[in-house]
Nucleic acid binder design. Structure first.
Lengths: 339, 339
DNA sequence: ATGAAAGCGCTAACAC
DNA sequence: GTGTTAGCGCTTTCAT
C-alpha cells in the first residue's frame, strides 16, 4: 500500500540539477536550457516520476479539477440518470471542453441530503476548483449551498429565484412555440399537450410557449395534462387526454419519454401516429429515434450548452470578473415520422 | 478567486488551543477533553473552517477518493454510457457502499487514448487512491496501464488474460443455461440465439451455457447469429434467423436491447411474442420493462456486484494482502411476458 | 490530555 | 538560465 513514488528531489539528483529546474521542466516554464530540459526529461523517464497532486495543489491553491454535479433526489437516482441520454450529452459536451484545458472532470451525484453535504464539503475542501451543476428538481438546495460556500458554480438551467449564479439555459418558451407551430402547420385542429412538472420553470415555459403560439393562431384553451417525465406518466396522461378529449389530433409532450408513452397508448387505442394523432416530443433523446414511429421533437443543443458552461466556469476560475453570466440557447425542431 | 479560507491555525487561535488539538478534534481522535472538544467545535463553527484536502493528503498519502472508471471507445461515448441503465446500477451499488466510508466516489470516462492517459495520470498523481473499472471493449488497454502504474484496481468482469487483478464477475455460463432451460420448459422445440460479440469472454460464456443446456436436453446445433449489443443489431440478427430458420420458436438474445430489436422484427413479420416465438433477454435493464411485450430476462445482481467491487478495493486500500481476489455471482431469471 | 516541532512534495520569489 | 529558500496547511511523533 505504500505507493510513495520518486519525488522531484529524486529526479533532480538523477539529473544533476536542482528541484526548481525539474519543476520548471515539468510545468513547461520557459527559460530552461534545451540541453538541460532533455537531461531532466530523461531522468523523469528513468525514475518514472509523477508529480504529487496534493503537494502541488497545496501551493498553487488549485486542484485543476472541476466537478460535474448531478443533483436530484430519490431512490435509484443514479439508475434514473443513467437511463436518460440527456446527461450523456451534457457530460460529453463538458468533458470535450475540459480535456485539453488540463482540467480533470469528475462526476459526482448529489441524490440525498448526506450526499449533498459530502459533495459540498469536497468542494469547500478544495477537492475541485468549481462545479458545473445539473439540477433535476425544482427546489434543489444544492445551488444555494454551493453559493453559500463560495464555490465557483455554473448551472445548467436557471438558478432559483434570487441566486446570482452563472448559468446556461434553453429558450424553453421558444421550444413550446416551435412544437405548436409545427402541429398547426400540419393541419392539426385539436392540439393538446402533456406538460412537464409545472413546478419547474422550464416546464411552465414550454407550456406557455405552446399556448402562446396557439393563441396567436386564434386557438384557445388546448387541453393540458401534467406528466412526470417518465414513459408511464406520458402513457397515463395520454389516456386521460383521450378520455376527456377524443377529438385530439395532435399532442405536444414536454419530453421524449412521455411522447413515447403517448405513442404506445395511441397505438393500443387504435389511433395511428401521425395520421390520426400527430405527436411532438422534446429533447431529441435516443428514444426519439428508437420510438415507433420515430419522434418529431424539439432539440436542445445540449453539448454546446454544456461546453459553454465549462467555458464560463473556466473563465471564472481564471479570474474573470465575478459578475455571473447568463447564456440563452435556441431550440430547433427535428422532424421525423411522428408529426 | 482567492478562496483561501480559515486554517487550522486560525481555529486554534480562536479556541485558545494548539493546532494539534484542533486536528485531533477534527479527525475524531480520542484523548481529547470533552470540554475542549466543545470549545474547538464552536470555534470551527464560528470560523467556518474546512480542512484543506491537499494539505491533508500530502501527509496522509491518501486522497480518500476512489475513481469509478468507465472505459471504452468511440464517439459520443458518454452518451452511449448514459443510455444504458446498466451503468446506473453499477454506480448506485458502488456509491452506496462508499458513502459512509468517507470515501468520495468520482466518476471518470476513458473513451480515447488521451483520455485514458489523463485518467491514469490522475491516479498516479494520487488524485484518487484506487479505481473501480468497468470496461466495455474486449481489448481494453486501461487495466494493463493501471496495473503497470501500480494503482489498486478492481474490475467489473474478468481481466485480460494474464493480468492478476481483483475482480467481480457474473457466472455468464449459468446465465446462458438459465435462458435455455426456460425456453425448453415452455415447450420450445426450435430455440435459437442472438449472441453477444464473441470476442468478449462473457459473450462466449453465455453462448456456451446456452448450448450446454440444450445439448444436455438432447438438442444440438441451435442456430446462432452474432449481434453487437444494440437494438439494430438485434433486429438484423432476428431477420437473418427468420430467413434461415423460419421454424424458430424461441430466441435467447444476449442482452435486452437486442431482444427488443428481435421483438420489433418479429411483430413486423407477424409473429406473436411469446405465442409464436418466445424471447429471453439478458440484463434486466429498463428496456426489459418498457419493451412490448415486457421481457423475460436473465438478471445480473449488478448493484451487489458493484458494492462488492468497492468493498474489495476498500479492503485492499486498508492494506489487506495484495493477492487479487475474485468474486463470482449467480444470475437469476426474471419472468415477464415475452417467454 | 496537550503542545512543540518536524516534515509531506511542491512552487515561486528571490538571488546569483 | 539556474539554484536557494521559504512556505502552502496539515498530521504526527515526541515531550511534557
Amino acid at each position: 500500500m505504500d505507493r510513495r513514488g520518486p519525488t522531484l528531489e529524486d529526479v533532480a539528483r538523477e539529473a544533476g540539477v536542482s528541484r526548481a529546474t525539474v519543476s520548471r521542466v515539468v510545468n513547461g516554464v520557459r527559460n530552461v536550457d534545451p540541453g538541460i530540459q532533455d537531461l531532466v526529461r530523461r531522468a523523469i523517464e528513468r525514475t518514472g516520476y509523477a508529480p504529487n497532486r496534493a503537494a502541488r495543489s497545496l501551493v498553487t491553491r488549485r486542484a485543476d479539477t472541476v466537478a460535474l454535479l448531478v443533483s436530484g433526489a430519490g431512490d435509484a437516482f443514479a439508475a434514473r440518470v443513467f437511463a436518460d441520454p440527456f446527461f450523456g450529452r451534457i457530460v460529453s459536451g463538458a468533458v470535450a471542453f475540459l480535456r485539453g484545458r488540463a482540467m480533470h472532470p469528475v462526476l459526482m451525484f448529489a441524490e440525498s441530503a448526506p450526499a449533498r453535504q459530502q459533495v459540498v464539503d469536497y468542494l469547500r475542501q478544495g477537492g475541485a476548483d468549481g462545479a458545473l451543476v445539473v439540477s433535476l428538481q425544482a427546489a434543489d438546495p444544492l445551488p444555494e449551498m454551493l453559493y453559500a460556500a463560495g464555490v465557483p458554480v455554473v448551472l445548467f438551467a436557471r438558478p432559483p429565484e434570487g441566486l446570482p449564479l452563472a448559468h446556461v439555459d434553453l429558450d424553453h418558451r421558444a421550444g413550446g412555440r416551435l412544437a405548436a407551430e409545427h402541429l398547426l402547420a400540419r393541419g392539426c385542429r385539436h392540439p393538446a399537450t402533456i406538460t412537464a412538472p409545472q413546478d419547474l420553470p422550464a416546464g411552465r415555459d414550454r407550456l406557455a410557449g405552446f399556448q402562446e403560439a396557439l393563441t396567436r393562431a386564434g386557438r384557445h384553451g388546448a387541453p393540458a395534462v401534467e406528466g412526470g417525465f417518465t414513459v408511464d406518466s406520458g402513457a397515463a396522461a395520454m389516456l386521460r387526454l383521450l378520455d376527456g378529449h377524443p377529438e385530439v389530433d395532435g399532442v405536444f409532450a414536454a419530453n421524449d419519454l412521455m411522447a413515447q408513452g403517448a405513442c404506445q397508448v395511441l397505438s393500443e387505442r387504435g389511433r395511428r401516429v401521425p395520421e390520426d394523432v400527430a405527436v411532438v416530443g422534446f429533447d431529441d433523446s435516443s428514444v426519439a429515434v428508437t420510438c415507433r414511429p420515430p419522434l418529431t421533437t424539439v432539440r436542445q443543443p445540449v453539448e454546446k450548452m454544456a461546453a459553454a458552461m465549462a467555458e464560463l466556469l473556466a473563465a471564472r476560475l481564471q479570474g474573470a470578473g465575478p459578475e455571473p453570466e447568463r447564456l440563452l440557447f435556441r431550440p430547433e425542431l427535428v422532424v421525423r415520422a411522428s408529426a
